[in-house]
Amino acid sequence: MLKKIVEHSQIKSPWLVHYDCGSCNGCDIETLACLTPLYDVERFGVLNIGNPKHADVLIVTGTVNKRNKKVLKQIYDQMPSPKIVIAIGACGLSGGIFREAYNVVGGVDKVIPVDVYVPGCPAKPEAIIDGVVEGLAKLSEIQKAGKPKKEAIAS
C-alpha cells in the first residue's frame, strides 16, 4: 500500500529546477509560460522549485559552453536521484546556431545524460509540457527498476 503510494507519487510531484546555459531567453520565456494560469502545470503537481537539492527534473535551455558546463554538471550532481534531464530548444539539443562557435561544447548531452529532448526554436509551451510528461514516464521507470544513479559523462 505504502509502496504503491510512493510509486504513484513519483510521477505526481515533479519539482523542476531550470538552468539557462546561455539561451537567447526565447526558450526560458516559453518554459516559464507553462507556469502561468493559461497552462498551469501545477495541475500535475509541477513546481518550479529552483533548488537542485529539492528538484527531480532539470530543465536546461541554451547552448552549453566551456564556462557553464561545470555549473551544469554541479547542479546535476547536487540533485538527488531519481532525476531526469530535459533539454529544451535547438540550442539545448545540439548547440543550435552556435554549435560551431569557439567556446561552445555543444548540446546538453555532451555534459550530462539527457532523458528527453524537446525541439523548437523556441520550443512551444505545449511541447515542453509534453516533454515533462514524457520525462515522468521515465522517472517512474527509473524508480521501478531501482537503477543506480547515473554519473555525469564529462568530468
Partner: peptide
C-alpha cells in the same frame, strides 16, 4: 504526493 516522493528519493 510531495512528501511520499521526497521520502523515496
Amino acid at each position: 504526493y510531495d512528501i511520499a516522493k521526497l521520502w523515496a528519493k
